[in-house]
């Protein structure tokens, strides 16, 4: 996957990631969690990062924002946010970027919010820290943000604590915190897992509307291919620390080329079809601690494997904006 030329190089790309690799040093060996990941996200674009658990979706997000724990480190590549290199940025520089130019929404909003501060103050904190507002202005703006994410009676709800709000409400507060400073990039890590589908629809509507209004780029991390299908313009499929396919959403769903993408689609229960038509994916993710990881980490599970698959992986651009890391695409 060298010489990565991210597809869909939007005219104004907000985030450019090339050859981005991350390792974790553990007692059981070095886990090669991300290997030469490359993609870019343009202004106003929503890109979905999909894959099974353990594929490296969340590690990508955490590593980009400098939130890896002590065992993890970025071993190569570059990630530029509006021209600023993130991989070499100092912790102080990163903490000035986080919350201001790049924001993140976490999976479990109740756990991510401070349980002993009311939500208005938590939104205000970001505004005071990053937008330089005074206490009073921040409080007023926090109420406006609550209104923007569709919370009824925002002036009263600003005084509420997370435990007093439903899961969907808490996630809307998280969104309000994330977008309060009008970031250029929003990373949403499984933002609706654990919410009811009805709430999920409302939360995703709000995220979509805010992205359209502010022109922020969004990375939607999800294991739900159907959610990605509905809510993104482009989908990047991850498997075992590689991005294996990256294409506009419609193209990826209608003409998937990587064997793994096809397998993933064949396992997704859609609104139509029969249970007998669903196919599971044989095998498991490879152990990423192995020293002899094959160049293609899907090879052992793949039914289209060729001798050529032993060669180092390379991106192939099958059509404009549709690239795949496979020697024998379907």
């Amino acid at each position: 996957m060298s010489a990565a030329t991210p597809a869909a190089a939007a005219s104004q790309s907000v985030l450019d990631v090339t050859d981005f690799s991350v390792e974790f040093r553990t007692r059981a060996g070095i886990v090669r969690a991300l290997d030469r990941v490359a993609f870019s996200v343009g202004r106003g674009e929503t890109m979905a990062l999909v894959g099974e658990s353990g594929s490296g979706k969340s590690v990508t997000a955490y590593a980009l924002l400098g939130l890896l724990d002590a065992a993890g480190r970025i071993t190569g590549g570059s990630a530029r946010l509006e021209g600023t290199e993130l991989t070499s940025a100092s912790p102080a520089a990163l903490s000035a970027i986080r919350g201001k130019r790049a924001a993140m929404i976490f999976q479990n909003p109740r756990a991510a919010l401070n349980p002993i501060r009311n939500v208005g103050k938590q939104i205000g904190d970001v505004l005071r820290r990053h937008a330089g507002l005074g206490a009073r202005a921040a409080a007023a703006e926090a109420i406006e943000m609550l209104r923007a994410v569709g919370i009824p009676d925002p002036a009263r709800r600003a005084g509420a604590y997370p435990f007093e709000l439903s899961g969907g409400m808490c996630q809307r507060v998280m969104i309000a915190i994330a977008v309060a400073t009008r970031p250029a990039l929003l990373i949403a890590d499984e933002p609706t897992t654990g919410l009811d589908v009805t709430t999920q629809a409302v939360v995703m509507d709000i995220m979509g509307r805010l992205a359209a209004e502010t022109g922020m780029a969004t990375i939607l991390i999800t294991h739900d291919l159907a959610l990605a299908a509905e809510r993104s313009g482009r989908i990047a499929v991850m498997h075992a620390g590689h991005i294996v396919e990256d294409a506009p959403t419609k193209t990826l769903l209608l003409y998937p080329r990587h064997p793994y993408t096809r397998r993933l689609l064949a396992a997704t229960p859609t609104a139509a079809g029969n249970l007998a038509d669903l196919r599971s994916i044989p095998g498991n993710l490879p152990d990423l601690r192995r020293d002899d990881l094959p160049p293609c980490r899907f090879a052992a599970r793949c039914d289209r494997r060729l001798p050529a698959c032993e060669a180092p992986m390379q991106w192939r651009e099958l059509e404009p904006h549709h690239r795949v890391a496979c020697w024998n695409p379907a």
Binding site: S166, T198, A201
Partner: peptide, 23 residues
Amino acid sequence: RGLVAAVPRLDGVRADALRLVGD
């Protein structure tokens, strides 16, 4: 109807999808 309309589908979001707001 609202519950069914909220379920994500591979063929993309429907413009006329019914939304259940509130709790």
